[in-house]
Deep mutational scan, measured.
Amino acid sequence: TCPLCKTELNIGSKDPPNFNTCTECKNQVCNLCGFNPTPHLTEIQEWLCLNCQTQRA
Rank of each mutant, 00 (worst) to 15 (best):
D15E: 05
L48Q: 04
D15W: 04
L48Y: 08
T21R: 14
N31D: 11
C49G: 00
W47V: 13
C22D: 01
K26V: 13
W47E: 12
F19P: 03
N36Q: 11
G12K: 05
P16L: 08
T54H: 09
W47K: 08
Q28I: 02
K6W: 01
F19Y: 12
N36F: 12
Q28K: 05
P3M: 09
C2H: 01
Q53F: 04
P37H: 03
H40I: 10
H40P: 13
K26Y: 14
C2I: 00
G34F: 10
L41V: 12
L48P: 04
C49Q: 00
D15H: 05
E24Q: 07
N51H: 07
Q53R: 14
Q45N: 11
K6R: 04
K14E: 05
E24G: 11
T38S: 12
P39T: 11
G34V: 10
C33Q: 02
T42Q: 13
D15Q: 11
K6V: 05
N10A: 12
N10Q: 11
P3D: 13
T7M: 04
E43D: 08
F35M: 15
C5R: 00
N51C: 01
P3L: 04
E46M: 05
N36I: 07
E43V: 06
N18F: 06
I11M: 12
P37G: 12
W47I: 09
D15M: 09
K6Q: 10
G34N: 00
D15P: 04
T7V: 05
L48T: 08
N31E: 14
P16H: 11
K26P: 07
I44T: 04
T42P: 07
K6D: 04
K6L: 03
Q53G: 10
Q45D: 05
T23I: 06
E43K: 11
T7Q: 12
P3G: 07
E43N: 07
D15F: 11
T7K: 12
L9A: 12
T23H: 06
S13M: 11
L50S: 14
T7L: 07
Q45F: 07
E8L: 05
P17V: 03
C25Q: 02
C5Q: 01
F19I: 15
T54K: 15
I44H: 06
T7E: 13
C2V: 00
E46Q: 11
K6S: 13
L50K: 13
P17Q: 08
N18K: 10
P39E: 13
P3K: 05
K6H: 07
C33G: 02
E24Y: 03
C5S: 01
G12V: 03
T54I: 03
E46T: 08
N36L: 10
N20V: 13
C5A: 01
C5T: 00
P3S: 09
N27Q: 14
K14C: 02
N27T: 09
F35S: 15
T54C: 06
T21E: 12
D15T: 11
P16R: 06
P37S: 11
C2A: 00
D15R: 05
L32P: 07
L4T: 09
N31I: 07
T7D: 10
T1G: 05
V29L: 04
D15C: 07
N27D: 08
C2Y: 00
Q45V: 12
I44W: 04
C52M: 00
G34L: 12
T21H: 11
L48A: 09
K14H: 13
K14P: 07
E24H: 09
L48I: 08
Q53K: 14
L41D: 11
E24K: 10
G12I: 14
C22T: 01
H40K: 09
D15I: 11
I11R: 08
N31P: 08
H40L: 10
K26A: 15
L32I: 08
L4K: 02
W47A: 08
L32V: 14
T38I: 07
T7G: 11
P37A: 10
W47T: 06
C52G: 01
I11Q: 13
C33T: 00
S13L: 05
N36S: 07
T23A: 14
P3V: 04
N20D: 15
I44G: 12
E24T: 12
G12D: 15
V29M: 10
G12M: 12
G34S: 08
C5W: 00
C2N: 06
Q55H: 04
T42G: 14
L9F: 11
C33R: 01
L41N: 14
T21Y: 14
L4I: 09
T54V: 06
P16C: 10
F19D: 02
G12C: 13
F35C: 12
E43I: 04
C33N: 02
E46Y: 04
K14Q: 08
C25Y: 02
P17S: 06
L9P: 06
W47C: 07
N31F: 14
P17W: 06
C30L: 00
F35L: 15
F35D: 15
P16V: 03
T1S: 07
N18P: 10
N10T: 13
H40Y: 07
T23S: 11
Q45L: 08
C49S: 00
P17M: 03
C5D: 02
E43M: 06
L4C: 10
E43L: 03
D15L: 11
G34Y: 07
G12E: 13
C25G: 01
C5V: 00
D15K: 10
T23L: 06
E43G: 11
P3A: 05
K26N: 13
V29R: 07
L48N: 09
C33F: 00
C25W: 00
T7P: 05
V29C: 12
Q53W: 03
C25L: 01
L41E: 10
P39L: 11
P39V: 13
N10S: 09
T23R: 10
C52P: 00
V29T: 07
T54R: 14
C5K: 02
P37D: 15
T23F: 15
E8Y: 01
I11E: 15
G34H: 03
I44S: 12
N18W: 04
C33L: 01
T1F: 04
T42L: 08
L48W: 09
N20F: 09
P17A: 06
P39Y: 07
N10G: 04
Q28C: 11
E8P: 08
N20Y: 04
L41Q: 11
L41F: 14
T21W: 14
C22I: 00
C25S: 01
L41P: 10
E8A: 05
E24N: 06
T42H: 14
C30W: 00
P37Y: 03
K6G: 03
H40A: 13
N36W: 09
C22V: 01
C30M: 01
C25H: 02
E46L: 07
F35G: 15
N51I: 02
K14D: 11
T7H: 06
I44R: 07
T21D: 09
L50R: 15
G34E: 04
W47Q: 08
C2T: 01
L50N: 12
E8T: 08
P16S: 09
C30R: 02
K14V: 12
L9C: 06
C2F: 00
F19T: 10
Q28G: 12
N51V: 04
E24W: 06
S13W: 02
L4Q: 12
N10R: 04
P17E: 14
L50P: 15
L41Y: 13
C2R: 00
L9I: 08
F35A: 14
N27M: 08
L50Q: 14
P17D: 07
C5E: 01
T1M: 10
H40D: 13
N20P: 06
Q28P: 08
F19G: 10
T54Y: 03
K26E: 12
N31Y: 11
G12R: 09
L4F: 03
C25V: 02
E8S: 08
P37N: 01
Q45W: 15
P37E: 14
